Simulated assay, not measured.
Amino acid sequence: MTTTEDPTTAAAVDPGPLIRLTIADCAAKALHSAVTLGVFRALADGPADAARTAELASLHPRMATDFLDALTGLGLLERAEGRYRNSVLAQTYLVPSSPSYLGGFVELTNETLYSTWGRLTEALRTGSPQHLDPDKGGFVGDRHQDPAKMKRFLAGLDAYSDRMGAELARRVDWARYGSFTDLGGARGNLAAVLVQAHPHLTATCFDLERTRPLFTEHVGRLDAADRIAFAGGDFFADPLPAADVFVLGHILHGFDTGRRRALLRRVFDAVGPGGTVLVYDRMIDDDRSDPERLLSSLHMRLVSPEGSEYRVADCRSWLREAGFTGGGAEPLLGTHTLITAHKPNPAQEDAA
């Protein structure tokens, strides 16, 4: 027997959320194009009408007004008496001269996400990770082979690590420590933020040896080479640089559970007695209900053979297995979770 849906029931269900979800990428692409074309840079010094904004950002007149009004509707621009200006959000984060500029991160996501997520259906069918085609300008998977692409990739990450470093500098009682190792520290941007905020600290960035030239150039430009060292090696094969604190940001999500546990055991051995480990990622909430965190996990599965996000409870369990105590979790920048755990100090315990 064939059944048909009651049309009155369908009419009572608003399809709006479904339609908005279907075209959600349109808004993101508008943002990406605005950053690439320099719309927010063009309006950084004050309002301009549509014709002048189009001239400054090289927008074709046929497209300009709808484009600028769409950006206004998205909360990125404001319009008054026919003139456009940056919203507070855009002026703060999307003007290249701003110290909190996130345009590099916007451009990074534009170049890395769309082509890869276009292969999601194939990945869901096969379980195989998907990589961008280097011939089409992508650099996920092949970025280390091209220094120019690697610099662009790291510049995008710098836009985010500036904010992350500032938040960690504020949240952690660094007066208790003298040194830290940033595991996977790339070209040293987060480490530089921390040592600039806390001048008594020294740091080591541990990353692949091929990252060293990029680190040397970047840290030298930041005038921090005397306080941040680079150690090249493999997380699982080479000695980890000893320190009072280890920072693992966006590291554990790149490995399967077995390798996460192994790495945390190695970190436990390398951190000094009474020291601390800081782990942050877009961790999945324990009841697995936050769609943004779950999509982030799906992205890691899409682009890597063994990566994914993980639950907060799982991370705490791995830290305890490694020997750490504590494991307090707190939100970080609204998109991440920070877990802080400690290595016991037998000398202090004996004295107590």
Rank of each mutant, 00 (worst) to 15 (best):
Gly328His: 01
Gly184Thr: 02
Pro15Thr: 04
Val195Ser: 02
Asp269Glu: 12
Asp226Arg: 12
Tyr280Asn: 11
Pro291Gly: 03
Asp66His: 14
Arg62Ala: 15
Ala243Phe: 02
Thr325Ile: 08
Thr116Trp: 02
Ala322Cys: 08
Arg163His: 14
Arg210Lys: 14
Gln91Glu: 11
Pro147His: 09
Ser317Tyr: 08
Thr2Ala: 14
Ser304Leu: 09
Ser115Cys: 06
Tyr310His: 14
Ile23Phe: 12
His250Val: 07
Asp173His: 07
Leu68Gln: 01
Val195Leu: 02
Arg62Phe: 12
Glu330Lys: 06
Pro47Cys: 08
Ser87Phe: 00
Leu31Gln: 10
Cys205Gly: 05
Gly184Lys: 05
Arg210Thr: 13
Tyr310Arg: 15
Ala24Trp: 07
Lys136Arg: 15
Leu248Asn: 08
Leu338Lys: 08
Leu194Gly: 01
Tyr84Glu: 04
Gln145Ser: 15
Leu113Gly: 03
Arg187Asn: 09
Asp290Cys: 06
Val39Tyr: 03
Val95Thr: 05
His131Asp: 10
Glu349Lys: 11
Gly184Ala: 08
Ser97Gly: 10
Val193Asn: 01
Leu154Glu: 07
Gly185Ala: 04
Gly178Val: 01
Phe215Tyr: 09
Thr3Asn: 13
Ala54Asn: 00
Ile23Arg: 14
Glu107Gln: 14
Arg265Phe: 02
Met150Asn: 15
Leu74His: 03
Gly104Cys: 00
Phe324Met: 05
Gly220Tyr: 06
Leu201Gln: 00
Glu111Asn: 14
Leu263Ala: 00
Ala352Met: 07
Leu94Phe: 04
Glu81Cys: 05
Ala203Trp: 05
Ala30Asp: 13
Leu264Ser: 00
His342Val: 06
Thr216Tyr: 02
Arg20Ser: 15
Arg288Gly: 10
His198Gly: 05
Gly249Arg: 09
Leu68Asp: 08
Ala34Gly: 09
Leu108Asn: 07
Ala224Lys: 15
Ala347Ser: 11
Gly118Val: 04
Met300Thr: 09
Thr121Gly: 13
Ala186Gly: 04
Glu81Leu: 07
Cys205Ala: 00
Gln196Ser: 14
Gly73Asp: 03
Arg52Ile: 10
Asp66Tyr: 10
Ile284Lys: 03
His198Val: 00
Ala57Thr: 05
Leu295Val: 12
Gly118Gln: 04
Ser58Asp: 13
Arg265Pro: 06
Arg261Pro: 06
Pro344Asn: 06
Ala57Trp: 04
Ile228Ser: 10
Leu37Asp: 03
Asp238Trp: 05
Glu321Gly: 11
Arg259Pro: 01
Arg20Trp: 10
Ile251Met: 01
Thr65Met: 12
Arg85Lys: 09
Gly156Met: 01
Arg316Thr: 09
Ala347Asp: 12
Val267Tyr: 01
Asp226Glu: 13
Pro147Thr: 11
Ile19Gln: 13
Arg260Tyr: 03
Gly188Trp: 03
Lys136Ile: 02
Ala329Asn: 08
Tyr93Pro: 07
Asn110Trp: 08
Leu263Ser: 06
Glu111Lys: 15
Tyr177Ala: 03
Phe236Ile: 07
Ala90Cys: 08
Gly334Arg: 03
Arg170Ile: 01
Leu222Ala: 14
Glu5Gln: 14
Ser115Gln: 14
Ala44Arg: 09
Leu319Lys: 13
Ser161Arg: 13
Gly254Glu: 12
Leu214Cys: 08
Leu201Cys: 02
Leu240Asp: 01
Asp14Phe: 07
Ile19Leu: 15
Trp117His: 11
Arg301Gly: 13
Trp117Ser: 12
Leu201Thr: 01
Val140Ala: 11
Glu217Ala: 15
